[in-house]
């Protein structure tokens, strides 16, 4: 009964795009000097991959690193491995000045997929979501209507959206409204 639950377990909406709450996702906020060895080692420890460059997404063997700001990454890994990864991250950081903290429960994550996914998000985010401007490999922090959000494309089929946990219902309802039948824009 006390197993952790995500913000909106099982929430799903099928409209122009499929909106799904993505379930439990391990997330570690890592702040530090991204150019230094300890930080790169910490990223490798958490994701088995490289440290992403400016606005980049770096998928590793065991996780993904998202560039959040010049001194901040969001490291994604399986939810139940967060504690163990965080230990490895902390060990890799050693004495370096850095901050690594588990934020898995602070956020909600959605997947937005289907041919109209770009348009659904383009109704809510002031971001150029055309295929020539937005493709897998980049992450964008912006706002989704009235709340902060980060979006990226794990693959060509769809998007991941991260927002704060407390507004998960708002975000889900927003995405659902943007995907309402008959509202295809037909641009992308």
């Amino acid at each position: 009964m006390s197993e952790p639950i995500s913000a909106l377990p099982g929430a799903r909406h099928d409209g122009l795009a499929r909106i799904e709450e993505a379930g439990l996702q391990g997330m570690i906020t890592l702040r530090g000097d991204l150019a230094t060895k300890p930080v790169k080692a910490a990223v490798a420890a958490a994701t088995g991959g490289k440290t992403p460059g400016l606005r980049g997404v770096a998928a590793g063997k065991t996780g993904t690193a998202l560039w959040m700001s010049p001194d901040e990454l969001l490291l994604l890994c399986p939810y139940d491995e967060v504690a163990q990864r965080l230990e490895k991250v902390t060990a890799a950081l050693g004495d370096a000045h850095a901050l690594a903290v588990d934020v898995s429960d602070a956020r909600a994550m959605f997947s937005v997929s289907g041919p109209a996914a770009r348009e659904v998000l383009a109704k809510l985010c002031p971001v150029d979501l055309s295929p020539q401007a937005f493709a897998p490999g980049v992450v964008r922090r912006s706002r989704m209507a009235q709340v902060p959000a980060a979006i990226w494309m794990p693959d060509a089929q769809g998007f991941r959206v991260i927002c704060f946990r407390s507004v998960a219902r708002y975000a889900f309802d927003l995405l659902g409204a943007a995907a309402q039948p008959g509202s295809a824009v037909g641009v992308y």
């Binding site: 009235q146 709340v147 704060f164 407390s166 708002y170 943007a178």
Partner: peptide, 16 residues
């Protein structure tokens, strides 16, 4: 106003 009406007029934050 766009989508900002009814349930999504503004974000309503909920605790767990």
């Amino acid at each position: 106003a766009g989508e900002a009406r009814g349930a999504v007029f503004q974000p309503l934050r909920r605790t767990p």
